[in-house]
Write a protein that binds this DNA or RNA. Structure first.
Lengths: 228, 228
DNA sequence: GCTCAACGAGAGCAGTGCTCTCTATTTAGT
DNA sequence: ACTAAATAGAGAGCACTGCTCTCGTTGAGC
């Protein structure tokens, strides 16, 4: 191993440590990450951080990508662990995994799905990781259609909506009918809304039994989709 | 009119103007409201603002309450304008009004439904205004049950969920069965998710026909609820 | 061994929310 | 009508932020 790589390795470790400290700050102090506080925690001066991240937004972007992957991993492994033939079981497992991750990492979830930071535009690097959770969910439907366990609905969609959805399906879920894709996206939208309301304290005072409520609501969407 | 009230009137006008300028800043600069910038726009120095609002959070709270009422007004009048007997028409009108208001006031919507500002806890004054949109939506279901146009579903809810929902119904929607309330809340959650995805740019590149998509998705929820 | 890039420290800039003090004005009480 | 008190605004200042620039130091490649 050439000597040059030790500097590169130290650099990579520094980047990792900065991200780790920043993630810790997110968890304790909330979503407004202070670069200077991160630097202080590392015994560095704030300008030194700029050797590794050109700006605070770039650090945030790195954290966002990592968070998307963490959430994606959680959802995908939950789905993969469930019985492949049990579509409804997979749906519930994936939904519960997403909610569990969000409850365990509220600040990171807010980073991903909260209101966009003013002036911050999500870079292209984030769009693929961001697609993983919905891709997993709708992948369940595609599997169901493929092996005949799930009979797609026959909604009459407005032509332009059907065209848009058909294009999406052609690119990501070959063979998935547009009406079913629409219902799957409804399920994903619902999942996001459920977790957001849960996390941002919109229903905890009025609904003490939130786990059971969540399960029932995701079951409603499973019904809408037609999961057996 | 006693002379004392002219000072009070000027004060009220000042408060209104501060809120108006702040709202304008929200619309142009995004959600991170700068108190100093508002003061500059009014030809005042920043400390003078503190004669009217004890802190930046209090100014934000005032804006939030106003925004909730603006959204609530939009949704309620849309519902009230529609044919009272046409439950599905009322549902769509209310949903469309909420989305239209959000698209017209994205920064204020983000203030209401985005990730909570770190350290900012919504005061009690906001909870009643915040309930207006979902109250309107579920009020449509209550009306439907009351006049027999809407037959409630017979889902078997987990006992604790049924109890929680029954308590909510007892307080806000007497006579509304718990399973129907659950479906109505699903519709509200879905509406929030739809608008958020739409507003925060999560589906505009992939779904050009967003109006039609929105209508179809809200129709799906109307189906789930059972609106005729 | 020399050279140049990388690194960290430090100072500094413009901006933020907020507090405190000081002055002018308006209100209220006698 | 005069005085005392409440109110409004200005200004300075504190601690903090992201970010830029300059300065030595250190380490890697030739």
């Amino acid at each position: 191993m050439p000597a040059s790589s030790i500097r590169a390795r130290v650099r990579a470790e520094m980047i990792d440590e900065i991200k780790a400290v920043a993630r810790r700050h997110l968890a304790t102090d909330g979503a407004d990450l202070s670069l200077r506080a991160v630097a202080r925690d590392m015994g560095m001066v704030s300008s030194a951080i700029y050797r590794y991240f050109p700006s605070r937004d770039d650090l945030l972007t790195a954290l966002i990508i990592e968070a998307y992957h963490a959430l994606g991993d959680a959802v995908e492994t939950a789905d993969a662990t469930a019985d492949r033939a049990d579509l409804r079981g997979r749906w519930h497992a994936a939904c519960r995994a997403a909610r569990a991750w969000a409850l365990a990492h509220p600040a990171e979830y807010a980073l991903l799905y909260g209101s966009p930071v003013p002036g911050y535009a999500a870079p292209v690097d984030t769009v693929l990781p961001a697609q993983r959770p919905p891709l997993t969910l709708i992948g369940i439907l595609r599997d169901g259609v493929a092996d005949g366990r799930l009979t797609p609905p026959d909604d009459d969609l407005p032509a332009p909506v059907r065209a848009d959805l058909a294009e999406i399906a052609a690119g990501l879920f070959p063979g998935l009918p547009a009406p079913l894709l629409a219902r799957g996206m409804a399920g994903w939208t619902q999942l996001f809304g459920l977790i957001s309301f849960d996390l941002f304290g919109r229903l905890d005072p009025v609904l003490p039994h939130r786990d059971a409520y969540f399960d029932h609501q995701t079951a409603l969407m499973a019904d809408l989709i037609g999961l057996p």
